[in-house]
Amino acid sequence: MTRRNIEGSFHLSGGDFTNAGAASSELKSILTNLGINPEIVRRAAIATFEAEMNVIIHAVAGVMYYLITQDTIKVVLNDMGPGIPDIDRAMTEGYSTAPDWIREMGWGAGMGLPNMKKNSDRFKLDSVVGEGTTVEIIIRIKEGKTE
């Protein structure tokens, strides 16, 4: 079965814990309703959820854009925020600059970026200090699982 490309976007506000995760949750329903393999949906949901939470936790505002084609899920998160001075260090398991009150909310384990990378087939992180960060997540939809 062929389907048209599906795309859309969500606006994200830094510090808005009431709606934190709502965008990833909605994207997850969209992917599930398309009949995509649950294992692939879960990987996409985890990677985008971590990326969405980083915007909520570390940035001021951002946009999550998604494009679902016949064979890939692509999610791009673009934020205005402090940026990441040392990307290699940020990618290290357990490294976090999140304050204690964020950890009391359940975040700040320093595993978010490694989790995004682990669940993506392609993962790109670009950042300009003082301007913002862009995360690109690409996940392949395996053949024959989408009909």
Binding site: F17, A20, E50, R103, G106, W107, G108, A109
Partner: peptide
């Protein structure tokens, strides 16, 4: 009690979460 630690694994289906984090973030996760 840290959500990203859970998201790192929990790859096996049919699991239950035991946590001290009693807020909406646990539900989302």
């Amino acid at each position: 009690d840290l959500m990203s630690d859970l998201l790192h694994f929990s790859s096996r289906p049919k699991s239950i979460l035991i946590t001290g984090l009693n807020n909406t973030q646990a539900i989302r996760t």
